[in-house]
Computed example of a mutant assay.
Amino acid sequence: MDRLSRLASAGIPFLFIISYDKSEVIVRPLDALGNIRVALHQTPAIKPETPPAPKKQPVPFMKYKEAFDQVIEEIKAGNTYLLNLTFSTPIHCSHSLEEIFEMANAPYKLLYKDRFVCFSPEPFIKIENDVISTYPMKGTIDASIPDAEAKILANEKEMAEHVMVVDLLRNDLGIVGREVRVETFRYIDRIVTADKTLLQVSSRIVAKLSPDWPARLGEILDEMLPAGSITGTPKRRTCEIIETVESHKRGFFTGVFGVFDGKNLESAVMIRFIEKTEKGLVYKSGGGITIDSDAEAEYEEMLDKVYLPI
Score class of each variant (00 low, 15 high):
69 D>T: 13
189 D>C: 03
209 L>A: 01
209 L>C: 03
174 G>R: 06
168 L>A: 03
293 S>V: 02
168 L>T: 01
143 A>T: 07
52 P>R: 11
149 E>F: 01
131 V>A: 08
137 M>K: 06
129 N>L: 10
116 F>D: 11
233 T>K: 12
85 L>I: 00
203 S>A: 13
215 A>Q: 10
186 R>I: 01
113 K>A: 13
160 A>V: 02
242 I>M: 13
21 D>M: 15
295 A>L: 02
111 L>P: 13
42 Q>E: 14
129 N>Q: 15
145 I>C: 06
247 S>M: 05
108 Y>L: 04
219 E>N: 03
281 L>A: 07
164 M>F: 13
26 I>C: 07
205 I>R: 01
177 G>W: 14
188 I>F: 07
289 I>T: 05
82 L>P: 00
126 K>F: 11
92 H>D: 11
153 L>M: 02
214 P>N: 06
116 F>L: 13
217 L>Q: 08
286 G>C: 05
126 K>C: 11
142 D>S: 01
92 H>T: 12
108 Y>D: 04
162 H>S: 00
245 V>C: 05
281 L>T: 09
257 F>Q: 12
164 M>Q: 01
169 L>Q: 04
276 K>I: 03
258 G>C: 14
269 V>N: 12
299 Y>N: 07
184 T>L: 14
185 F>Q: 01
195 D>Y: 12
200 Q>Y: 10
104 A>T: 01
155 N>E: 08
106 A>C: 03
5 S>N: 02
29 P>Y: 15
34 G>M: 06
103 M>Q: 11
79 N>A: 05
93 C>E: 04
55 K>H: 14
192 V>C: 13
221 L>S: 06
189 D>Q: 10
204 R>W: 11
71 V>N: 14
143 A>G: 11
258 G>F: 14
226 P>M: 07
126 K>D: 14
228 G>R: 12
176 V>H: 09
91 I>Y: 07
295 A>P: 01
66 E>F: 14
299 Y>Q: 05
243 E>R: 14
221 L>C: 08
15 L>N: 08
19 S>P: 07
155 N>D: 12
125 I>R: 03
269 V>W: 14
208 K>F: 13
90 P>K: 09
205 I>P: 00
39 A>T: 00
79 N>L: 07
94 S>Y: 00
169 L>H: 01
116 F>E: 08
249 K>W: 02
178 R>I: 01
234 P>S: 13
289 I>M: 08
15 L>A: 04
181 R>E: 15
101 F>H: 03
116 F>Q: 10
181 R>F: 15
77 A>I: 04
136 P>K: 07
275 E>R: 15
220 I>M: 09
278 E>T: 11
183 E>S: 10
91 I>N: 05
170 R>E: 02
210 S>H: 15
213 W>P: 02
258 G>M: 14
98 E>F: 00
302 M>T: 07
64 Y>H: 12
175 I>C: 04
